[in-house]
């Protein structure tokens, strides 16, 4: 950044750790991860349109160890972005602006996203995917 000589706002190192900070950072991080996930959706759909060979190439990737690890990551990324996104929409509507409510809803987004991820993968494992 250009050295303007203007005073800087307090940077990350100065703040005490708080859960709202973590959810804010994770929202952006999971959003970026989900962009890569969007490309996987693009690959899957174009493969399905292209025919059985392209499709088996796609499912070969998603069924590989590397693919499954990525899918697990994307599952949590989507669940977190979804839960925290709903939290943001409610806040945009003016709800939950007291600091204790902020802290509680942040933890709720983290915990519920993890529970949903576990539920989805428990279902997948029960279905014999792994």
């Amino acid at each position: 950044m250009a050295q303007s000589g203007r005073p800087l706002s307090p940077h990350l190192g100065i703040y005490r750790w708080q859960v709202q900070m973590v959810t804010s950072i994770l929202h952006r991080a999971t959003g970026i991860a989900l962009v890569a996930g969007a490309l996987l959706v693009l690959w899957g759909l174009t493969a399905l349109a292209a025919g059985p060979d392209a499709w088996s190439c796609f499912t070969g990737f998603t069924g590989s160890v590397f693919g499954l690890i990525l899918l697990l990551g994307w599952t949590w990324a989507l669940m977190f972005h979804l839960c925290n996104g709903v939290r943001h929409l409610l806040q945009d509507a003016g709800m939950g602006y007291e600091i204790p409510q902020f802290v509680r809803s942040s933890w709720l987004a983290v915990v519920v996203s993890l529970l949903l991820t576990v539920a989805i993968w428990a279902y997948l494992m029960a279905g014999g995917v792994l």
Partner: peptide, 26 residues
């Protein structure tokens, strides 16, 4: 926000649809 509201519904549909397609062949 508009796309977020749409995606709340659509991504839940997307995940449920994928989960209903375990072991689906081409």
């Amino acid at each position: 926000r508009m796309t977020a509201v749409a995606l709340v519904v659509l991504s839940i549909w997307f995940v449920l649809t994928l989960l209903s397609m375990l072991h689906a062949d081409f």
